[in-house]
Nucleic acid binder design. Structure first.
Length: 319
DNA sequence: CTGATTACCTGAATGC
DNA sequence: TGCATTCAGGTAATCA
């Protein structure tokens, strides 16, 4: 499933294939994939037709394209963009570049025709089996925090409305560890719940949360108000590193025809240390000659994988 | 504010 | 074989 590294790979692919092109036609194949566009599929299409893609921005797993609307003045006298095409891949979403002659994918949901460009496919397609993801047009609003937005080619002091409540992600150069730690300490909750809270730090999903906790040797239920600064740094650094590892692994093929969103990135073919390893030897303990089998618990209605030896559960105020 | 629950979806895997 | 159930996941809305 697409996680932050995969979304970043998509963003880079879109920069290569879509930046500066104009949307010449819109085909909503399945209206459920634009259900977050409140005014309906026709309004969605009407907003996009004739619009030009000015930038590709990501924060956490939200990805959006600020648009120069149809008929707007371009160049030096251009006004700042007011709207953006927002995309969230959900669990199974893909953005693919395709030639016009290519047959529809089984789960094709939205087709965008793009202005011709030499050697480049004519369509950007949104394909999504499970429909947790979607596209919609949204307003750009000023950011409340100083500095540019999330990762972008040319950072804008504007942010998509639906991403305004999302915290910066660990790969964002403007991510503030100090702010994160202060807010983390003020919560009365478990560490994994905090890591998954997109308002505190964005981009971390269930898999990378487990991987980061394993690398940091911390338990998912560790109360956030007991975390020492070094421990919080450890888990944040681990999250950043595991995502950078995945980005490196998944970023190798984005120069292909596809904007590259293969549901499973290269990283998932590599070995994860925690996620999905129930009953298997903890790799770190094994390296020390200790026998410890990874366990799976249900937490927040989803699976959490831990090593009982090097990630002991906190109890009675002792950790 | 926090957390618990549910809706949103499909297809693979499992159970009987 | 076939039919029913379970599970996976991110986000948002709702409720306690």
């Amino acid at each position: 499933m697409p996680e932050l590294p995969e979304v970043e790979v998509v963003r880079r692919g879109l920069v290569s294939w879509v930046l500066g092109r104009t949307i010449t036609g819109v085909d909503v194949v399945d209206p459920r994939s634009v259900r977050r566009h409140a005014l309906g599929p026709e309004d969605f299409a009407g907003n996009l037709e004739g619009a030009t893609v000015l930038d590709i921005v990501r924060r956490g797993k939200f990805l959006w394209m600020p648009l120069q609307e149809a008929g707007a003045v371009a160049g030096e006298d251009a006004e700042p963009p007011k709207v953006a095409l927002m995309a969230h891949l959900g669990m199974s979403g893909q953005l693919l570049m395709q030639d016009n002659a290519e047959p529809d994918e089984k789960h094709l949901k939205v087709r965008l025709w793009l202005s011709p460009r030499d050697g480049m496919p004519g369509q950007l397609r949104f394909v999504d089996q499970r429909i947790f993801g979607g596209l919609f047009v949204t307003s750009l609003v000023p950011t409340d925090d100083a500095g540019p937005g999330g990762l972008a080619e040319k950072p804008l002091p504007l942010i998509a409305e639906e991403a305004a409540h999302i915290a910066r992600d660990p790969l964002d150069p403007h991510f503030s560890f100090g702010d994160f730690y202060r807010r983390l300490r003020s919560r009365k909750t478990g560490l994994k719940r905090a890591l998954l809270d997109q308002g505190l730090v964005s981009g971390i999903g269930n898999i990378y949360a487990d991987e980061a906790l394993w690398r940091a040797k911390l338990h998912y239920a560790r109360p956030t108000d007991t975390l020492r600064r070094a421990e919080a740094e450890r888990v944040l650094t681990a999250a950043r590193e595991v995502m950078l590892d995945a980005l490196e692994a998944g970023g190798t093929s984005f120069d292909s025809l596809y904007v590259n969103v293969n549901g499973a990135s290269g990283y998932f073919e590599r070995s994860l240390d925690a996620y999905g390893r129930e009953g298997e030897q903890c790799r770190r303990c094994a390296a020390s000659g200790i026998v410890s089998l990874m366990r799976r618990d249900m937490f927040m209605n989803r699976s959490s994988y831990t090593c009982p030896v090097c990630q002991p559960r906190p109890r009675n105020g002792r950790w």
